[in-house]
Nucleic acid binder design. Structure first.
Lengths: 251, 251
DNA sequence: CGCACGTGTCGGCCGGGACCGAACCGTGGC
DNA sequence: GCCACGGTTCGGTCCCGGCCGACACGTGCG
C-alpha cells in the first residue's frame, strides 16, 4: 500500500533523468550541443563560465546518463548529443521554458544574433527565419500536408526526388519522417524529423547553404535563386536581414 | 565573447523547468497525475509516502512553475496537469528514463498491475494493451496512415463520423490531431493527440469502456463486441487478461 | 626530453532544498 | 460551540551536489 504501484516508470527514474538537465551549467551544455556538432570539454567550460574540472565532472554525468556520447581524440574529449531523440527532448523542454527577456547586449552580439535568427541549425535541421520559411513553403507547395497531422504527400516524394533526396532511406529507425519543432526565435514551427535533417544536409551538399560560425548558417549567392525556385517563392523572400547576406556580420 | 549568445532559451530557464521534475517526490506526483484526473494534496502525499506539509510545498512549486493548475473546493486543494502539452512533456521524459526493474510485489499488486497493463488512461487517451491494439487496428483499417508521418486519412474521417466523432472541432488549438505516445508497459506506440483523447472520451460516453479504480479502464461486456466490430477484429482479440474482466481486483 | 595544454581526481567549502514536526487556519459535521 | 480533518506556514535539521583550487596524468609539440 505504501509504495504504490505506478506500474510504469517510477518517480526516481524520471527524477534522475530530469536532474541531469536541472543544473544551469549542464543545461547550457546541452543547449550549446543542440547545434549537432561535437564540442570539447574546454570549449563548453569556457562558454558556460566554469572551471575545466567542473565541466569535466558534468560531462561525465551527462555521458553516464546517456544524454551525451563521447569520442576521445588525443588529449581532447569530444562530446555530442547521443541522438535525435535526446535533441528532441532538450528542444521540447526548452520550448516549454519561459522565454528569457534577453535583449542582446553589445553591437557584436546584436549582429551575431541577427545572423542566428535568420538561419541556424537546430541539432541537424534548419531553424530560424529560413527554417520557418522552408516549412511554410513546403506546405504551400503541397509537399507537406497537415490535414490529418503533418505528413509528406505523394507530390512531396516527387519533389524530393527532383532535388536528389531519396525518401525510402529516411524511413529507417524509429525517428519520425517529419515533425514540427518549435522555433525559439520565431515561436512558430519549423521542419524536423529525418526529412528535415536530410534537407538540411542536401542544401549544404548542393552548396546552397554554408555553415557560418557556431551554429549559424548562411544562404549562398548561388543558393538563393536555386532554393527560391525549388520552393516556388520570389528570391527576395529569402533575403537575409539588413546586413549583407554574404558577410557574417563583420567584426 | 565570454557570456556567449545562446539566442534562445537560456540555460537557467531550462534548468529551473527541469528542476521541477528532478525530485522523486514531485516526479511521482506528475506521474500519478498523468491519469488526467484531479487529485487532492493529501492523496498525492499518501501515494508518495511524504508528510502533508512536504506535499503542500511541492505542489506550490509545481503550480508556480506552470506544470500544474489548482482548483480549491472547500477544504480540499485539487490539482491536475496544466494541459496536454505538460502531459506530453512528462510522458516524453518518462519514456526516455530507464525502465524500472520492478517486478510487482504482492498478490494484490500483481492483479492491479494486470488490470493496468490491459487498459488505462494516459492523461486523456487510452493506453495499455488495449491502447496499442486500437492504434494498430486503426492503421490496419486505413483510418490512420504513416506513409509520410502519422496522419488521419480521408477514410478515417468517414469512419469517425460513423462512430459519432466529428473531426473538425478537434483541429482547434496547437495540439496535434494524432500523435504517437510510447506505451510504458508495451514499449510500443499508442494513439495520443486530440483525436486519441476524443476516441477515449467517446468510448466512455458510449458505455463501451468504464473507469476502474485509479487510472484503470475496463471494456464492458457490451463494449467488447461493439469495439471489435468497429475495429474489424475478432472479439476474442479484445479479451482481457486471465482474471475476470469485470471485477477490478477485489479489495 | 621537457614543457604546455587539455583533462581527470581529490578534498573541502558552501548553498540550496527536501524533509519533518508542531503550531495555525479554515471548512464542514455534530 | 466544539471537534475532526485537510491544508498551510514556520523553524530546524541534514544531506546532496555544484564549485573551486591543487595536483596528477597523458598527449603532442618543440
Amino acid at each position: 500500500m505504501e509504495g504504490m504501484t505506478t506500474t510504469g516508470t517510477d518517480g526516481r527514474a524520471l527524477a534522475s533523468l530530469a536532474a541531469l538537465l536541472a543544473d544551469s551549467t549542464r543545461a547550457s551544455f546541452c543547449l550549446a550541443l543542440l547545434d549537432g556538432r561535437a564540442w570539447t570539454a574546454g570549449e563548453l567550460a569556457r562558454t558556460a563560465g566554469v572551471a575545466p574540472s567542473t565541466a569535466s565532472d558534468h560531462l561525465t554525468r551527462l555521458v553516464q546518463g546517456g544524454l551525451l556520447v563521447e569520442e576521445r581524440q588525443g588529449r581532447h574529449r569530444y562530446v555530442r548529443l547521443a541522438g535525435p531523440a535526446v535533441a528532441q527532448l532538450v528542444e521540447d523542454l526548452a520550448g516549454h521554458a519561459p522565454a528569457p527577456p534577453t535583449p542582446p547586449r553589445g553591437l557584436r552580439a546584436v549582429s551575431a544574433g541577427v545572423a542566428l535568427s535568420y538561419a541556424r541549425t537546430c541539432y541537424d535541421h534548419l531553424a530560424g527565419r529560413l527554417g520557418v520559411l522552408l516549412h511554410d513553403a513546403l506546405l504551400d507547395q503541397g509537399v507537406l500536408d497537415r490535414a490529418g497531422g503533418l505528413a509528406l504527400t505523394p507530390v512531396g516524394v516527387g519533389w524530393l526526388a527532383e532535388l536528389g533526396v531519396p525518401v525510402e532511406p529516411l524511413r529507417v529507425g524509429r525517428r519520425p519522417l517529419v515533425r514540427d519543432c518549435l522555433d525559439w526565435t520565431e515561436r512558430r514551427p519549423h521542419l524536423a524529423g529525418s526529412l528535415g535533417a536530410a534537407l538540411c544536409r542536401r542544401f549544404l551538399d548542393l552548396g546552397w547553404t554554408v555553415r557560418g560560425s557556431g551554429r549559424a548558417v548562411r544562404l549562398t549567392p548561388a543558393g538563393r535563386p536555386a532554393l527560391a525556385a525549388a520552393l516556388g517563392v520570389a528570391p527576395d523572400a529569402l533575403a537575409a536581414p539588413a546586413s549583407r547576406d554574404t558577410a557574417p556580420a563583420r567584426a
